[in-house]
Design a protein around this nucleic acid. Structure first.
Length: 129
DNA sequence: GAACTGATTGTTAGG
DNA sequence: CCTAACAATCAGTTC
């Protein structure tokens, strides 16, 4: 299935996104949840984490957010290295200058921001009182 | 045996 | 601004 999210996306130098505070939180809580339960699957645990995440104090969240912020910084650094590699990417095989460069444009889907629903807006210039 | 999916939310980057 | 997608984790599933 086309969800390439298992280990490494493609390139070993591909900078992975910085984990969000929630993820860092999960890294710490997941084993805790497992400890409370014999062995749940990620799906089940994730739900527990999500609920706990909302219940943790903002101070705790802030703590993780801070870590995430640093992780982001590191991510930028990796990105630079990744960029550099792209620039001087030595021909891996047959000296293709533009051989390795999976990042072109993210073919994301574009959904309409609003549904064509026009219902109540103003009935008529009815302004009575 | 190993690639893959399942759910959770946040962060990111491009259009 | 907004939208989509991907980030980890681990057991379970499948071929």
């Amino acid at each position: 299935m086309p969800r390439a999210s298992k280990k490494q996306t493609k390139d070993p130098n591909a900078p992975k996104r910085p984990l969000s505070a929630f993820f860092l939180f999960s890294l710490d809580e997941r084993p805790a949840i497992k400890a409370g339960n014999n062995s749940l699957s990620v799906g089940d645990i994730s739900k527990q984490i999500g609920e706990k995440w909302r219940k943790v104090n903002e101070d705790v969240k802030k703590g993780y957010e801070k870590r995430a912020a640093e992780a982001k910084k590191n991510y930028e650094k990796e990105l630079e290295a990744y960029k550099k590699k792209q620039a001087s990417s030595g021909g891996v095989s047959s000296g293709g200058t533009s051989a390795s460069a999976p990042s072109k444009s993210r073919p994301r889907k574009k959904a309409p921001p609003k549904a064509p629903e026009s219902d109540e807006d103003d009935m008529d210039g009815d302004d009575d009182d």
